[in-house]
Simulated scan of single mutants.
Amino acid sequence: MKIVILEGSPNKRGSSNMLAERFAKGAKEAGNEVVIIDAAHCHINPCKGCIACGYDGPCVQKDDMEWIKKEILSADMLVFVTPLYYYGMSAQLKILIDRFCAFNGSIQRKHMKSALLAAAWNNDGWTFDALEEHYKTLVRYLNLQDMGIISGRGCGTLFMTQQSEFPEKAYELGRKLL
């Protein structure tokens, strides 16, 4: 299976990317092909809302979404990875997802698998609610099959992440995929 991991953290060595790294290790050990796309450091323009794409492409903008789209459409699974800064996914990941507009139909027809990996320093009971609901809406709208959510509560720093159970949970999620 080909898995495309969409990282949305501007901090290359941050907690959410650490979860992605552990997930990728498990997925590779299970025999999967893994491609990591660092959305936070790609050149991706926001969607203009012009709908020239007709929701199934091509997009009028010519940026890194051209090659990212090819990777996504050749995948069997998408993994959304984000730090939780302000009760939702990072702006960097959201810009990429907004550009799905130009190929929604193609994604929907693929019936891909998906997962969400997120990390935040806050450990209360509601911090991840909005992010998890947004992810579930994407799953429903894009006809994705949810394989799991790892909400790294209390993992807002690399040290906290290393001392928690969440990296192992991310590894195990990747490892169980065939």
Rank of each mutant, 00 (worst) to 15 (best):
K2Q: 15
K2C: 05
K2M: 15
V4A: 03
L6R: 04
E7V: 01
E7K: 09
G8T: 13
G8E: 10
P10E: 15
N11S: 07
K12N: 07
R13G: 11
S16C: 13
N17K: 04
N17Y: 11
M18T: 15
M18D: 06
L19Q: 01
L19G: 00
F23W: 08
A24P: 00
K25W: 11
K25M: 09
G26E: 00
G26M: 02
A27I: 01
A27S: 05
K28R: 13
K28Y: 03
K28P: 01
A30E: 00
E33L: 06
V35K: 08
I36W: 12
I37K: 11
D38V: 05
A39Y: 02
A39Q: 06
H41S: 11
C42Y: 09
H43Y: 14
H43E: 15
N45M: 11
C47F: 10
K48H: 12
K48C: 06
C50S: 11
I51A: 03
A52R: 10
Y55D: 06
D56R: 06
G57I: 15
C59S: 12
V60R: 07
D63T: 04
D63W: 01
D63Q: 09
D63Y: 03
D64R: 04
D64Y: 08
E66W: 02
E66V: 14
I68S: 04
I68G: 03
K69P: 13
K69I: 13
K69W: 09
I72G: 02
I72Q: 03
L73R: 07
L73N: 06
S74L: 10
D76Q: 11
L78T: 04
L78I: 13
L78W: 06
V79C: 07
F80G: 04
V81A: 05
T82F: 05
T82E: 06
Y85G: 06
Y85A: 05
Y86C: 06
G88R: 10
M89D: 02
M89Q: 13
M89R: 08
S90L: 02
S90K: 00
A91Q: 06
A91E: 04
Q92E: 14
K94E: 10
I95W: 05
I97G: 02
D98F: 02
R99C: 09
F100M: 03
C101V: 12
G105T: 14
G105I: 15
I107D: 05
I107Y: 00
Q108T: 13
K110S: 03
K110M: 08
H111Q: 07
K113W: 04
S114T: 15
A115G: 00
L116Q: 00
A118Q: 03
N123V: 09
G125K: 08
G125Y: 06
W126V: 13
T127S: 06
F128V: 09
D129I: 09
L131S: 04
E132Q: 12
E133V: 12
H134P: 02
Y135S: 14
V139L: 02
V139K: 01
Y141P: 00
L142N: 07
L144F: 07
M147N: 14
I149P: 05
G152T: 06
G152F: 07
T157G: 10
T157Y: 13
F159E: 14
T161A: 15
T161R: 00
S164T: 01
S164Y: 02
F166G: 09
P167T: 01
E168H: 02
E168I: 03
K169C: 07
K169V: 05
Y171L: 01
Y171F: 10
L173P: 04
L173N: 04
G174C: 01
R175T: 01
R175M: 05
K176T: 12
L177R: 03
